[in-house]
Simulated assay, not measured.
Amino acid sequence: MSEFQYASPFERLIARIIDKVVITLPIYLWFGFHGNQKIIETIAGGILLASIVLLNVLWNGQTVGKKVMKIRIHSYQDKKLHMGHYLLREFAFTLYPVYLLTHPVIKTSWLFWMLSTIVLILMYGRGLHDFAARTMVVKTQANTVPLNKES
């Protein structure tokens, strides 16, 4: 894995924020901010999930935010990533739907999940969702070999 330089937590965070704003802001503008917030958040979350997976598949591991930050998702095992990898990765990352955060056990579990992900990204460059999908997020300009090469 020495050919690749991991994306920093800051780059990953900014890319996620850009994706969330670019994809969900039009949904909130369309439905308005005064409707049933749980329904709007559920719709926005579903569209965000589908959009991120689709963009990753179409753009070889990149979304709008990742393109802006010059980072991409790459297989940790140098295999070609497919929709299942991206879907598993996003499901593992979005394990904390807002409408489920009402029960104390779920809130505590979510807090543990997010803290674990943050610590793992800081220590190893990969979060729980990366480990689950066997992926890593790398800088595109630092790569010396083509990404997503066939195994």
Rank of each mutant, 00 (worst) to 15 (best):
R134E: 06
F93D: 10
I14L: 06
S116A: 15
D130A: 04
I23C: 03
F112T: 14
F4V: 04
T135V: 03
R134M: 04
Q62S: 04
V138I: 13
M123L: 05
A132I: 05
A50D: 00
I71A: 08
G65F: 12
H82V: 13
G127E: 00
M83K: 01
M83V: 11
T117H: 09
I23W: 06
K67I: 14
T135N: 11
L13I: 13
N148K: 02
M1A: 14
S2Q: 05
S75D: 10
L95P: 13
T102Q: 01
A133Q: 02
F10Q: 14
L87G: 08
V105I: 10
H85T: 08
M114A: 15
A92T: 00
A133H: 11
L81V: 00
S116Q: 08
V98M: 00
L128S: 07
V119D: 06
F33W: 11
Y76K: 14
S8L: 10
P146A: 00
G61P: 10
L120D: 01
K79P: 13
T63Q: 08
T102H: 02
E11T: 01
R134G: 00
H129K: 07
F10M: 13
A133Y: 10
L101A: 15
S75F: 06
K139M: 12
I106A: 02
Q5I: 14
N148Q: 01
K80H: 11
K70Y: 14
T135L: 00
W110S: 12
H129G: 02
H82R: 12
Q62R: 14
V53Q: 09
E90V: 14
V138N: 15
R72N: 01
L25Q: 04
I39S: 03
Y6C: 05
D130T: 00
R16D: 03
I47V: 06
I14H: 00
L13P: 14
A44K: 03
V105M: 01
N56A: 13
W30H: 10
S51G: 11
I17A: 07
H34F: 08
G127W: 12
R12P: 14
M1K: 06
I121Q: 13
G46A: 05
Y124E: 12
A142Y: 06
I73T: 08
F112K: 13
I17Y: 15
L48Q: 09
K38P: 10
P146E: 08
